[in-house]
Simulated scan of single mutants.
Amino acid sequence: MYSFKNDYSEGAHPRILDKLIETNLIQQPGYGEDEYAKEAKAIIKRKIANELASVYFLSGGTQTNLLVLSFLLRVHEAVISAKTGHIYANETGAIEATGHKVISIDTINGKLTPDDIIKTLNEHALAPHVVKPRIVYISNSTEIGTIYTLLELQALYGCCQENHLLLYLDGARLGHALTAANNDLSLSDLGKYCDVFYIGGTKNGALLGEAVIFNKPELAMDFEYAVKQKGALLAKGRVLSVQFLELFKDNLYFQLAQKANSYAMQIAKAIKEKGYSFLTDSTTNQLFPILPKSLIQVLSQKYQFYIWKEIDHDYAAIRLITSWATEEEQVVNFIDDLKTFR
Protein backbone atom coordinates (compact mmCIF):
# COMPACT_ATOMS: atom_id res chain seq x y z
CA MET A 1 0.00 0.00 0.00
CA TYR A 2 1.31 3.43 -0.91
CA SER A 3 0.04 6.42 1.02
CA PHE A 4 -1.39 9.58 -0.52
CA LYS A 5 -3.06 10.43 2.81
CA ASN A 6 -0.76 13.27 3.87
CA ASP A 7 2.57 15.02 3.30
CA TYR A 8 4.24 13.96 6.54
CA SER A 9 4.29 10.16 6.25
CA GLU A 10 8.06 10.16 5.80
CA GLY A 11 10.72 11.46 8.17
CA ALA A 12 12.85 14.28 6.75
CA HIS A 13 14.77 15.21 3.64
CA PRO A 14 18.25 13.61 3.68
CA ARG A 15 19.98 17.00 3.65
CA ILE A 16 18.31 17.87 6.93
CA LEU A 17 19.28 14.57 8.50
CA ASP A 18 22.85 15.05 7.27
CA LYS A 19 22.97 18.55 8.76
CA LEU A 20 21.65 17.31 12.10
CA ILE A 21 24.33 14.62 12.16
CA GLU A 22 27.04 17.05 11.06
CA THR A 23 26.21 19.49 13.88
CA ASN A 24 25.27 16.86 16.44
CA LEU A 25 28.29 17.07 18.72
CA ILE A 26 28.93 20.79 18.37
CA GLN A 27 27.99 22.34 21.69
CA GLN A 28 25.47 25.15 21.52
CA PRO A 29 23.45 27.27 23.98
CA GLY A 30 19.93 26.01 24.61
CA TYR A 31 16.44 27.46 24.36
CA GLY A 32 16.80 28.96 20.89
CA GLU A 33 20.02 30.87 21.57
CA ASP A 34 22.13 28.65 19.31
CA GLU A 35 24.11 30.03 16.38
CA TYR A 36 21.95 28.12 13.89
CA ALA A 37 18.85 29.91 15.11
CA LYS A 38 20.50 33.30 14.71
CA GLU A 39 21.62 32.49 11.18
CA ALA A 40 18.28 30.96 10.15
CA LYS A 41 16.35 33.94 11.53
CA ALA A 42 18.60 36.36 9.66
CA ILE A 43 18.01 34.48 6.39
CA ILE A 44 14.24 34.44 6.90
CA LYS A 45 14.19 38.17 7.66
CA ARG A 46 16.07 38.86 4.43
CA LYS A 47 13.71 36.66 2.41
CA ILE A 48 10.63 38.43 3.76
CA ALA A 49 12.37 41.81 3.33
CA ASN A 50 11.67 42.80 6.93
CA GLU A 51 14.72 43.11 9.16
CA LEU A 52 12.54 44.29 12.04
CA ALA A 53 10.49 41.09 12.15
CA SER A 54 10.56 38.77 15.16
CA VAL A 55 11.04 35.07 14.33
CA TYR A 56 10.38 32.09 16.58
CA PHE A 57 10.77 28.37 15.93
CA LEU A 58 8.00 26.12 17.26
CA SER A 59 7.36 22.42 16.88
CA GLY A 60 3.97 22.12 15.18
CA GLY A 61 1.08 23.90 13.50
CA THR A 62 -1.59 23.48 16.15
CA GLN A 63 0.88 24.55 18.81
CA THR A 64 1.77 27.62 16.76
CA ASN A 65 -1.86 28.61 16.19
CA LEU A 66 -2.69 28.09 19.85
CA LEU A 67 0.27 30.12 21.10
CA VAL A 68 -0.07 33.03 18.68
CA LEU A 69 -3.83 33.45 18.92
CA SER A 70 -4.12 33.04 22.68
CA PHE A 71 -1.21 35.47 23.11
CA LEU A 72 -2.68 38.20 20.91
CA LEU A 73 -6.33 37.96 21.98
CA ARG A 74 -7.65 39.74 25.06
CA VAL A 75 -10.20 37.93 27.22
CA HIS A 76 -13.26 39.23 25.33
CA GLU A 77 -11.84 38.92 21.82
CA ALA A 78 -12.42 36.33 19.09
CA VAL A 79 -10.87 35.12 15.85
CA ILE A 80 -12.61 34.92 12.46
CA SER A 81 -11.98 31.80 10.36
CA ALA A 82 -13.38 29.99 7.36
CA LYS A 83 -15.31 26.87 8.36
CA THR A 84 -12.65 24.85 6.62
CA GLY A 85 -9.95 26.61 8.64
CA HIS A 86 -7.69 24.35 10.66
CA ILE A 87 -8.37 26.15 13.95
CA TYR A 88 -12.10 25.59 13.48
CA ALA A 89 -12.23 22.12 11.97
CA ASN A 90 -9.13 20.20 13.01
CA GLU A 91 -7.61 21.35 16.29
CA THR A 92 -9.87 19.76 18.91
CA GLY A 93 -11.19 23.10 20.11
CA ALA A 94 -7.69 24.27 21.09
CA ILE A 95 -8.52 27.94 20.67
CA GLU A 96 -11.89 27.66 22.41
CA ALA A 97 -10.16 25.86 25.29
CA THR A 98 -8.25 29.10 25.96
CA GLY A 99 -11.55 30.95 26.31
CA HIS A 100 -11.67 32.53 22.85
CA LYS A 101 -14.44 31.99 20.33
CA VAL A 102 -13.71 31.00 16.74
CA ILE A 103 -16.29 32.77 14.55
CA SER A 104 -16.72 30.54 11.50
CA ILE A 105 -17.70 31.63 8.01
CA ASP A 106 -19.03 29.49 5.15
CA THR A 107 -16.93 29.85 2.01
CA ILE A 108 -17.04 28.36 -1.47
CA ASN A 109 -13.29 27.98 -1.91
CA GLY A 110 -11.88 28.08 1.63
CA LYS A 111 -10.87 31.74 1.30
CA LEU A 112 -12.13 34.75 3.23
CA THR A 113 -12.99 38.09 1.59
CA PRO A 114 -13.37 41.64 2.91
CA ASP A 115 -17.15 41.27 2.52
CA ASP A 116 -17.03 38.26 4.86
CA ILE A 117 -15.14 40.31 7.42
CA ILE A 118 -17.44 43.34 7.25
CA LYS A 119 -20.53 41.15 7.56
CA THR A 120 -19.07 39.42 10.61
CA LEU A 121 -18.18 42.74 12.23
CA ASN A 122 -21.72 43.98 11.70
CA GLU A 123 -23.08 40.81 13.29
CA HIS A 124 -20.89 41.41 16.35
CA ALA A 125 -21.58 45.09 16.89
CA LEU A 126 -23.74 44.79 20.00
CA ALA A 127 -21.00 45.59 22.49
CA PRO A 128 -20.44 44.47 25.21
CA HIS A 129 -22.94 41.62 24.80
CA VAL A 130 -21.04 39.72 22.12
CA VAL A 131 -17.41 38.80 21.62
CA LYS A 132 -15.27 41.32 19.80
CA PRO A 133 -13.61 40.09 16.57
CA ARG A 134 -9.93 40.96 16.69
CA ILE A 135 -8.00 38.55 14.45
CA VAL A 136 -8.70 37.25 10.94
CA TYR A 137 -7.23 33.78 10.44
CA ILE A 138 -6.49 32.51 6.93
CA SER A 139 -4.51 29.57 5.53
CA ASN A 140 -2.32 29.56 2.43
CA SER A 141 -2.63 27.13 0.87
CA THR A 142 -6.07 26.55 2.32
CA GLU A 143 -7.18 23.27 3.80
CA ILE A 144 -8.84 22.47 0.46
CA GLY A 145 -5.84 23.29 -1.71
CA THR A 146 -6.72 26.78 -2.97
CA ILE A 147 -4.42 29.79 -2.73
CA TYR A 148 -4.70 33.54 -2.18
CA THR A 149 -3.61 35.98 -4.86
CA LEU A 150 -1.66 39.14 -4.13
CA LEU A 151 -4.73 41.29 -4.76
CA GLU A 152 -6.84 39.14 -2.43
CA LEU A 153 -4.26 39.33 0.34
CA GLN A 154 -3.85 43.09 -0.09
CA ALA A 155 -7.62 43.56 0.06
CA LEU A 156 -7.94 41.47 3.21
CA TYR A 157 -5.05 43.26 4.90
CA GLY A 158 -6.48 46.63 3.95
CA CYS A 159 -9.85 45.65 5.39
CA CYS A 160 -8.17 44.52 8.60
CA GLN A 161 -6.21 47.75 8.87
CA GLU A 162 -9.32 49.87 8.37
CA ASN A 163 -11.22 47.94 11.03
CA HIS A 164 -8.46 47.57 13.65
CA LEU A 165 -8.08 43.84 13.09
CA LEU A 166 -4.97 41.69 12.89
CA LEU A 167 -4.37 39.37 9.92
CA TYR A 168 -2.77 36.02 10.78
CA LEU A 169 -1.78 33.53 8.08
CA ASP A 170 -1.38 29.81 8.77
CA GLY A 171 1.43 28.63 6.52
CA ALA A 172 1.44 24.93 7.24
CA ARG A 173 1.60 24.40 3.45
CA LEU A 174 2.95 27.83 2.55
CA GLY A 175 5.68 26.36 0.33
CA HIS A 176 3.07 24.64 -1.81
CA ALA A 177 1.09 27.86 -2.14
CA LEU A 178 4.11 29.93 -3.16
CA THR A 179 5.21 27.41 -5.80
CA ALA A 180 1.78 26.81 -7.34
CA ALA A 181 1.64 27.54 -11.08
CA ASN A 182 -0.93 30.33 -10.62
CA ASN A 183 0.70 31.94 -7.58
CA ASP A 184 1.75 35.60 -7.66
CA LEU A 185 2.69 35.99 -3.98
CA SER A 186 6.19 36.05 -2.55
CA LEU A 187 7.60 35.78 0.96
CA SER A 188 8.28 39.50 0.86
CA ASP A 189 4.58 40.14 0.17
CA LEU A 190 3.76 38.22 3.34
CA GLY A 191 6.25 40.46 5.13
CA LYS A 192 4.09 43.43 4.09
CA TYR A 193 0.49 42.24 4.06
CA CYS A 194 0.18 40.12 7.21
CA ASP A 195 0.62 41.00 10.85
CA VAL A 196 1.75 37.49 11.75
CA PHE A 197 2.31 34.37 9.66
CA TYR A 198 4.20 31.14 9.87
CA ILE A 199 6.28 29.05 7.50
CA GLY A 200 5.48 25.36 7.78
CA GLY A 201 8.34 22.89 7.85
CA THR A 202 6.56 19.77 9.11
CA LYS A 203 4.66 19.27 5.84
CA ASN A 204 7.56 20.20 3.59
CA GLY A 205 10.62 18.14 4.35
CA ALA A 206 11.41 18.87 7.99
CA LEU A 207 11.22 16.33 10.79
CA LEU A 208 9.07 18.87 12.58
CA GLY A 209 8.90 22.60 13.01
CA GLU A 210 7.26 25.88 12.03
CA ALA A 211 8.79 29.36 11.88
CA VAL A 212 6.38 32.01 13.16
CA ILE A 213 7.02 35.59 12.07
CA PHE A 214 5.67 38.72 13.71
CA ASN A 215 6.06 41.44 11.08
CA LYS A 216 5.50 44.13 13.69
CA PRO A 217 7.94 43.63 16.59
CA GLU A 218 5.61 45.36 19.06
CA LEU A 219 3.11 42.53 18.57
CA ALA A 220 5.74 40.02 19.68
CA MET A 221 6.67 41.80 22.89
CA ASP A 222 7.04 39.14 25.63
CA PHE A 223 5.94 36.33 23.29
CA GLU A 224 8.87 34.26 24.55
CA TYR A 225 7.19 34.18 27.97
CA ALA A 226 4.07 32.62 26.44
CA VAL A 227 6.21 30.12 24.54
CA LYS A 228 7.94 29.04 27.73
CA GLN A 229 4.78 29.02 29.84
CA LYS A 230 2.99 26.77 27.37
CA GLY A 231 5.84 24.27 27.26
CA ALA A 232 6.96 25.12 23.72
CA LEU A 233 10.45 26.49 24.46
CA LEU A 234 12.71 23.54 23.71
CA ALA A 235 16.01 23.17 25.56
CA LYS A 236 17.36 21.61 22.36
CA GLY A 237 15.94 24.33 20.15
CA ARG A 238 18.79 23.65 17.74
CA VAL A 239 16.80 20.67 16.44
CA LEU A 240 14.36 23.16 14.91
CA SER A 241 16.77 25.91 13.87
CA VAL A 242 19.20 23.58 12.08
CA GLN A 243 16.34 22.35 9.91
CA PHE A 244 15.17 25.84 8.91
CA LEU A 245 18.73 26.88 8.22
CA GLU A 246 19.11 23.98 5.81
CA LEU A 247 15.73 24.60 4.18
CA PHE A 248 16.34 28.31 3.59
CA LYS A 249 20.07 28.73 3.01
CA ASP A 250 19.23 28.05 -0.64
CA ASN A 251 16.01 27.11 -2.43
CA LEU A 252 15.52 23.64 -0.92
CA TYR A 253 12.25 24.64 0.78
CA PHE A 254 10.73 25.73 -2.52
CA GLN A 255 12.20 22.88 -4.53
CA LEU A 256 10.55 20.33 -2.25
CA ALA A 257 7.17 22.04 -2.45
CA GLN A 258 7.44 22.39 -6.22
CA LYS A 259 8.08 18.66 -6.55
CA ALA A 260 4.97 17.84 -4.56
CA ASN A 261 2.87 20.25 -6.62
CA SER A 262 4.24 18.88 -9.89
CA TYR A 263 3.26 15.31 -9.05
CA ALA A 264 -0.18 16.45 -7.90
CA MET A 265 -0.76 18.28 -11.17
CA GLN A 266 0.23 15.17 -13.14
CA ILE A 267 -2.42 13.21 -11.26
CA ALA A 268 -4.95 16.02 -11.70
CA LYS A 269 -4.35 16.06 -15.47
CA ALA A 270 -4.98 12.33 -15.70
CA ILE A 271 -8.18 12.64 -13.65
CA LYS A 272 -9.46 15.42 -15.91
CA GLU A 273 -8.63 13.39 -19.01
CA LYS A 274 -10.83 10.62 -17.64
CA GLY A 275 -13.69 13.12 -17.46
CA TYR A 276 -13.94 13.36 -13.68
CA SER A 277 -14.45 16.63 -11.83
CA PHE A 278 -13.08 18.05 -8.57
CA LEU A 279 -14.61 19.26 -5.33
CA THR A 280 -12.24 22.26 -5.31
CA ASP A 281 -10.02 23.97 -7.84
CA SER A 282 -6.70 23.14 -6.23
CA THR A 283 -3.38 24.04 -7.82
CA THR A 284 -1.28 22.75 -4.94
CA ASN A 285 -0.38 19.32 -3.58
CA GLN A 286 -3.88 18.56 -2.26
CA LEU A 287 -6.43 17.16 -4.71
CA PHE A 288 -10.10 16.45 -4.12
CA PRO A 289 -11.35 14.48 -7.14
CA ILE A 290 -14.94 13.25 -7.35
CA LEU A 291 -14.75 9.62 -8.43
CA PRO A 292 -17.11 6.66 -8.85
CA LYS A 293 -17.25 4.63 -5.69
CA SER A 294 -16.40 1.55 -7.74
CA LEU A 295 -13.13 3.21 -8.80
CA ILE A 296 -12.43 4.32 -5.24
CA GLN A 297 -12.79 0.74 -4.11
CA VAL A 298 -10.32 -0.45 -6.75
CA LEU A 299 -7.77 2.25 -5.95
CA SER A 300 -8.03 1.64 -2.21
CA GLN A 301 -6.62 -1.84 -2.73
CA LYS A 302 -3.23 -0.32 -3.58
CA TYR A 303 -3.27 3.23 -2.22
CA GLN A 304 -4.18 4.96 1.01
CA PHE A 305 -6.21 8.19 0.92
CA TYR A 306 -9.12 9.80 2.71
CA ILE A 307 -12.68 9.59 1.49
CA TRP A 308 -13.46 13.26 1.99
CA LYS A 309 -17.13 13.74 1.17
CA GLU A 310 -20.12 11.69 0.07
CA ILE A 311 -21.51 13.17 -3.15
CA ASP A 312 -24.36 10.78 -3.97
CA HIS A 313 -25.13 7.10 -4.18
CA ASP A 314 -22.48 6.46 -6.82
CA TYR A 315 -19.83 9.13 -6.27
CA ALA A 316 -17.61 10.43 -3.49
CA ALA A 317 -14.78 12.94 -3.22
CA ILE A 318 -11.42 11.68 -2.00
CA ARG A 319 -8.35 13.59 -0.85
CA LEU A 320 -5.00 12.82 -2.44
CA ILE A 321 -1.84 14.52 -1.18
CA THR A 322 1.61 14.38 -2.72
CA SER A 323 4.75 15.36 -0.83
CA TRP A 324 8.43 16.18 -1.13
CA ALA A 325 9.09 12.45 -0.79
CA THR A 326 6.43 11.13 -3.17
CA GLU A 327 7.88 8.51 -5.50
CA GLU A 328 7.49 9.13 -9.23
CA GLU A 329 6.93 5.41 -9.79
CA GLN A 330 3.89 5.47 -7.51
CA VAL A 331 2.47 8.52 -9.29
CA VAL A 332 2.85 6.71 -12.62
CA ASN A 333 1.27 3.57 -11.18
CA PHE A 334 -1.68 5.52 -9.79
CA ILE A 335 -2.26 7.22 -13.13
CA ASP A 336 -2.04 3.88 -14.96
CA ASP A 337 -4.57 2.29 -12.60
CA LEU A 338 -6.85 5.27 -13.10
CA LYS A 339 -6.59 5.11 -16.89
CA THR A 340 -7.25 1.36 -17.09
CA PHE A 341 -10.43 1.53 -15.00
CA ARG A 342 -13.58 0.78 -16.99
Results as ranks from 00 to 15, higher is better:
Gln161Ser: 15
Glu210His: 07
Pro114Leu: 11
His176Asn: 14
Leu167Glu: 03
Tyr137Glu: 08
Leu167Gln: 08
Tyr157Trp: 11
Val212Ala: 04
Gln229Pro: 11
Val212Phe: 04
Ile147Trp: 03
His176Asp: 13
Ile105Ser: 02
Asp189Phe: 11
Leu156Tyr: 01
Gly201Ala: 09
Ala177Thr: 04
Ile199Lys: 05
Asn215Thr: 10
Cys159Gln: 04
Pro114Thr: 09
Tyr157His: 14
Tyr137Gly: 04
Ala206Val: 05
Ile144Asp: 00
Lys132Gln: 11
Leu190Cys: 05
Asn140Glu: 06
Asp106His: 13
Thr146Leu: 06
Leu153Val: 14
Ile138Ser: 04
Asp170Val: 05
Gly191Arg: 00
Asp170Arg: 07
Leu208Asn: 05
Asn140Asp: 10
Asn183Pro: 12
Ile199Trp: 06
Gln229Arg: 14
Ile108Ser: 10
Gly231Tyr: 09
Gly205Asp: 07
Thr120Ile: 15
Ile105Asn: 03
Asp170Ile: 06
Phe214Pro: 01
Ser104Tyr: 07
Leu156Ser: 04
Leu174Glu: 03
Gln154Phe: 14
Gly110Trp: 02
Lys230Gln: 10
Lys111Pro: 03
Thr107Asn: 10
Asn109Arg: 11
Ile147Leu: 05
Thr113Ala: 08
Tyr225Val: 12
Glu152Asp: 08
Val227Asn: 01
Ala125Val: 15
Ile108Ala: 13
Ala226Gln: 08
Gly110Lys: 03
Tyr148Leu: 09
